[in-house]
């Protein structure tokens, strides 16, 4: 079972973002650094998870996802910062069987 995705800012992939996977208890489960394509990958079990992202320079964004047995999930998180550095809402994730 996989939870994977991509981080972008203003339409461009972000390398070097730190993506944390937070478990149902609220505890950190794992963290990865995005590759040159802005991609990340986790191997969690079914359940409710939170994906929490820190970008170089100090921006943050996060998304709650629910993983169902036998499915993988693709999470696309896009950060469009305004003049105050606030991230704009991200599009919904898609699921694949």
């Amino acid at each position: 079972m996989r939870l994977h995705g991509r981080i972008s800012r203003a339409g461009l992939p972000v390398e070097g973002a730190y993506v944390q996977l937070i478990g149902p208890s609220g505890d950190f489960t794992a963290e990865v650094r995005t590759d040159e394509s802005g991609r990340f990958l986790f191997y969690p079990v079914a359940g409710s998870w939170e994906v929490r992202v820190s970008l170089p320079g100090g921006s943050h964004t996060e998304r709650s996802v629910t993983l169902v047995d036998g499915q993988s999930i693709d999470v696309q998180l896009s950060v469009d910062e305004d003049e105050h550095g606030q991230p704009a809402p991200a599009p919904p994730e898609s699921q694949t069987g």
């Binding site: 478990g23 489960t29 191997y43 969690p44």
Partner: peptide, 18 residues
């Protein structure tokens, strides 16, 4: 380890194959 590893749901941190 994470609660998921402690309770036996996961064998390793979730950024690693299980």
């Amino acid at each position: 380890r994470s609660p998921e590893e402690f309770n036996g749901a996961l064998a390793a941190p979730a950024h690693l194959p299980q």
